[in-house]
């Protein structure tokens, strides 16, 4: 499952990209850090013998989604937000403790999962052909559902906009 050096480097990059996304005050910077993070994860997918997913990750996530984000940020001019000063203190402390606690607990408990003997790399044929076969044979029903979800999302956007227009007309 990859060389430890590669893993550590990629992991470090991923974590720092995440930290950067969280901490930067400029939303555009956040989006760019997110792209870096997604790309790192895409490399992990390659390492993990998932070339198809890796490509999809780069096209859909790093390409479409983050571009959509950037587009909206720039559209709204919401890149620089004023620093709000509401009840931050307790919320911050509790949030940090809770997330740290969760991460610690998960790592301590689950990192020893399994006996460390992964299946050999050859055991997994993850070519686009194999994925396609699986998707359109065993998972054809969920796949159709997914299309339905996308359709509903699309319709909701149209309805949303139509209502807006109607309101403006009225």
């Amino acid at each position: 499952m990859g060389h430890p050096i590669v893993f550590l480097i990629l992991a470090t990059v991923a974590v720092f990209a995440a930290i950067g996304m969280l901490t930067s005050r400029n939303a555009v910077h956040s989006a760019l850090y997110l792209v870096l993070n997604f790309c790192t994860v895409a490399v992990f997918y390659l390492v993990l013998n998932a070339p198809f997913i890796s490509m999809v990750q780069i096209t859909v996530y790093a390409g479409a989604i983050v571009v959509l984000f950037l587009f909206v940020i720039m559209l709204l001019g919401a890149d620089q937000l004023p620093k709000a000063s509401s009840n931050g203190g307790l919320q911050y402390i509790l949030a940090i403790f809770a997330t740290a606690g969760l991460a610690t607990a998960l790592i301590l408990q689950l990192s020893g999962f399994g006996d460390g003997t992964a299946k050999p790399e050859s055991a997994l044929d993850a070519s686009p052909e194999a994925i396609g076969t699986l998707l359109f044979q065993d998972y054809v029903f969920p796949f159709e559902i997914t299309s339905l979800i996308l359709l509903v999302a699309m319709m909701s956007l149209i309805v949303f906009k139509a209502q807006k227009r109607k309101k403006q007309d009225g």
């Binding site: 499952m1 060389h3 992991a11 974590v15 998960l106 689950l110 990192s111 399994g114 460390g116």
Partner: peptide, 10 residues
């Protein structure tokens, strides 16, 4: 060697 545990941690 990288095990599944590493990925879980990440």
């Amino acid at each position: 060697e990288v095990t599944i545990g590493w990925y879980i941690a990440l």
